[in-house]
Nucleic acid binder design. Structure first.
Lengths: 335, 335
DNA sequence: TCATCCAACGTAAACGTTTACGTAAAAGAG
DNA sequence: CTCTTTTACGTAAACGTTTACGTTGGATGA
């Protein structure tokens, strides 16, 4: 059994209150007793029980992070950022992966509630009414990462998807491309799907390019979607010279399809992705992409949460982090 | 404030002991009171406080996972497996990334100790004496994932690296290759480095092929190591027709270098990787590799931990999971 | 010198559970 | 019908902390 504060108190010849006081550096003890107590703590290797502390302080120094899936490559960087910041601020993080399943999500929320975590970061999924209501009842702060809620006042950290998509498309236009296609994600996805499509369309329109239906609508943002999307796009509008892929994984799929069918990238077709996953620069050829600052986003989400925790405010400013175009080798100037 | 067991007891007109009994399904209450209590619980939306439970039961239903880094792509799948199994068995997982830093690791261990977690999974790093001693003192079970300890009796789950490397090399040999090179990881890494080198050498030897120094020793297992390794290897022994890369990331680096320098894969040189990361099949061309069952390994590590927790044993059988060769398109028969 | 104040503690209640123990009533045995 | 056993509870202690409150003893002030 681990030593308790009582053991320390007895051995140091003081009361547990005094031990607690030096532990928490609260006034009410002399230098001499401080020395003595700390010496005993050292000797015994005593370490306070965070569970007991949590019970009385109503604070567990633990936050929960809800991911729809752990297989996506985005989460690694998000988690990295979150964990780094949380640990810096003295908290631990519990990961949950909900598989985008409503029932599972509720189970996780219940679990996290029972564990009395201090706050929640909700990642890359839509915040359903059921979730929101439950978390409200829990009475703890929450922030959304890489998603936002139109229905509920929950602070979020994101990049501006529409703007980023606009930039990506504009980048292709500036390179002289006129016939540009897009392999989009799910157009019914109001967070990551539609805005990127909107940005794409808007850039074309602003450049005075007549919009010819060059958008392939996929189910998701996966490699397979890219593979399928590229096939459809090539069949449907073979004259295009550049493609905006709504995610890096889609871009990889497109790249793969191109490779399999002798389409040279970027000689025949240019491709720009979206996300800047760590593997983007490992692609062949290295993928030009509009990057989200993934780790930074994770860190930001965590600090927002702690800001709310400290201030006691239920809300905090949203953060729109800047995107950035990483020029690599999948886009070529069109003469 | 959330409701407590007292609120339930009062409203149901029973004592807190009775509420606790129906909560834990322990004998000592009638069907009628059970109904009543459950109804009140439902009405109030009461959920037990796991912190208080943890204090008295000395069990937090939380395990800790220590990763050296969260950026490697291996961890996603490991974490996925661990989290899935842990949640299935009613526990949460706290992630820690130590950045392979001794001091940080000790800090994390201390934190986990204070939080009174039930067990630890230690991933992909060497178990230093300091760590081991500390965890022993914590008095909780631990299992090693994708690593093992020669010095201490800690159960582990791994694939047989040497055997897997042997298989990979043999696979190349069976395809008719005679001049085979290897881009290895760190040869001083006794867990993931040396065994793979040994397996490689042994396969060559068993096939009666004179060993010519065709091994490039890298610092790690990264993309950059693959890029550099491939360059060195091509310079040093340009006549080789096949390469065994000690990790998929190294293989990606090699692929990239080959692409940049007009070396055709697999026409000029065949490459086999190691790990079977999810992105292996997204590579161009899709990467032939010897696969570790990453998710399965994570799940296995978790179940071993829970087996130890339930049985109270400090040890449990090690698990060597089978590897498997995934034939894709980076290896070609040599005529 | 004596009242006052403050630093330096100790005591005990509280946090929300679980559980050993006690007790009254119901059920069963003879 | 009485005695014993069982069922269905309630009471209170315990888990390891924090903290409000009370109690010292010495320093300070007049």
């Amino acid at each position: 059994m681990a030593y308790t504060i009582k053991d320390v108190a007895k051995k140091a010849g003081v009361s547990i209150a005094t031990v607690s006081r030096v532990l928490n550096n609260q006034p009410g003890f002399s230098e001499k007793t401080k020395q003595k107590v700390q010496q005993v703590i050292e000797e015994l290797g005593y370490e306070p029980n965070a569970v007991a502390r949590g019970l009385i302080n109503n604070k567990t120094h633990t936050i929960g992070v809800l991911f729809p899936e752990l297989s996506s490559m985005l989460v690694t960087d998000f988690l990295n950022g979150i964990e780094t910041m949380a640990h810096e601020l003295g908290s631990s993080v519990i990961v949950c992966h909900t598989e985008a399943d409503g029932e599972k999500t509720m189970k996780y929320l219940q679990l996290l509630n029972e564990k009395r975590i201090d706050g929640i970061i909700f990642v890359s999924a839509i915040l359903k009414e059921e979730y929101y209501n439950y978390i409200r009842k829990m009475g703890i702060p929450m922030v959304l990462l890489s998603t936002e809620s139109y229905a509920y006042p929950v602070p979020y950290v994101k990049v501006n998807d529409q703007h980023a998509a606009y930039s990506a498309t504009k980048y292709l236009l500036n390179k002289g491309h006129k016939k540009i296609g897009m392999i989009s994600g799910n157009k019914d996805d109001l967070i990551a799907g539609k805005p990127r499509i909107m940005g794409f369309k808007m850039a074309l329109k602003d450049s005075g390019i007549a919009f010819t239906d060059n958008i392939i609508y996929s189910k998701g943002f996966s490699f397979q979607d890219g593979l399928d999307g590229m096939e459809k796009l090539m069949k449907q509008s073979s004259e295009i010279s550049a493609i905006f892929a709504a995610s890096d994984e889609i871009a990889f799929g497109a790249l793969s399809f191109a490779y399999q069918h002798g389409i040279k990238i970027p000689d025949d077709v240019s491709i720009i992705g979206y996300d800047n996953l760590s593997i983007a620069e490992m692609a062949i050829p290295p993928l030009t992409t509009v990057g989200q600052p993934l780790i930074k986003m994770g860190k930001t989400a965590a600090s927002m949460l702690f800001e709310m925790l400290e201030s006691g405010n239920v809300f905090v400013e949203n953060r729109i982090l800047p995107h950035e175009i990483l020029e690599r080798e999948t886009v070529r100037e069109k003469r």
